[in-house]
Design a protein around this nucleic acid. Sequence first.
DNA 1: GCCAACGTTGGC
DNA 2: GCCAACGTTGGC
Length: 151
Amino acid sequence: MACWLVKSEPSECSIDDFVAAPDRTIPWDGVRNYQARNFMAQMAVGDAVMVYHSSCQHIGVAGIVRVVRAAYPDPTQFNSESPYHDPKSTPEKPRWQAVDLQFERKLPAVIPLQTIKAAPALSDFPLVRRGMRLSVMPVTQAQWQAILALG
DNA sequence: GCCAACGTTGGC
DNA sequence: GCCAACGTTGGC
């Protein structure tokens, strides 16, 4: 089983939004970055995913969700009303993928980015690399445990 | 295929 | 709101 981390602004989608969602499940769509998309394509049902809150008061890892549907064409790319619309994408040759994520648990407290940055075991973690703006990234078993140990 | 300009991300 | 670091775009 693989592990991942996804970034989101809580004003867009927070860990609490998963609790309120039908089936506690939210389609993770709107990702428009090729590297992130390629990682999403590798996600399998059952994979664990950390939810990271960015650009907010409490920046850091806020909770854990699970992949309940593997990659499928992101419907928003075909919707001209959507801010994620991609006119260059067609249903025959979809460019972007979505996955469905289901609430697993909320961490007792957000594990702050600052704390993650300060952990020597996490110096190679993409999240803490300066300027790294990847919105979906793989997390190794060791990194996963190291992050949770900070909580 | 190069590269300058531009837009976006995201911490501070 | 600032700005550094990228990714993308488009002229050549």
